[in-house]
């Protein structure tokens, strides 16, 4: 029967081994994977500003991006491709808040440059290789 000491060794040994593997994979991902998959060279000041605005206004509190966030408002990973820049820019400062189908967006007060930056950020997200996410629907009822 397993002794307490063996159980302890299983815990400490297993944790150490899998943690080291995890660190190894993390390093490979950051060095070789992410720059290629996300076109990291295309991250310029505009994208950076867009990302900052995305975070500081908690857009993830309603929307998802790369499937992450809240489930109150549309997934925005491919919004640039789906709607185009002009549509996206219209939503931000819409008087009374953008309210397409009964769900209310906050009315923002972005400058033209900030709107452009958010569009640039969303374009960058849309161009990243996300291993097939979001999936293409098998049927296209809305097309």
């Amino acid at each position: 029967m397993l002794s307490k000491k063996q159980a302890k060794m299983f815990f400490l040994g297993g944790t150490a081994v899998f943690f080291l593997i995890f660190i190894g994979m993390t390093v490979d991902t950051l060095v070789n994977g992410v720059p290629k998959y996300t076109h990291a060279s295309q991250i310029d000041d505009q994208v950076r500003l867009g990302r900052h605005l995305w975070d500081s206004n908690n857009c993830m509190g309603c929307h998802t991006i790369m499937g992450e966030g809240a489930y109150y408002a549309p997934e925005l990973t491919k919004v640039y491709e789906r709607r185009g820049p002009e549509y996206i820019k219209t939503t931000f400062n819409f008087p009374g808040g953008w309210r397409p189908n009964g769900r209310n967006m906050v009315e923002y007060n972005f400058t033209e440059q900030e709107k452009e930056a958010l569009v640039a950020f969303l374009k960058w997200v849309g161009e990243s290789d996300l291993n097939g996410f979001p999936p293409k629907p098998s049927v296209q009822l809305d097309k």
Partner: peptide, 12 residues
């Protein structure tokens, strides 16, 4: 995700 309905239509 499967039938391709728009987000808000599905939500309603």
């Amino acid at each position: 995700r499967i039938m391709g309905l728009e987000f808000m239509k599905a939500q309603l």
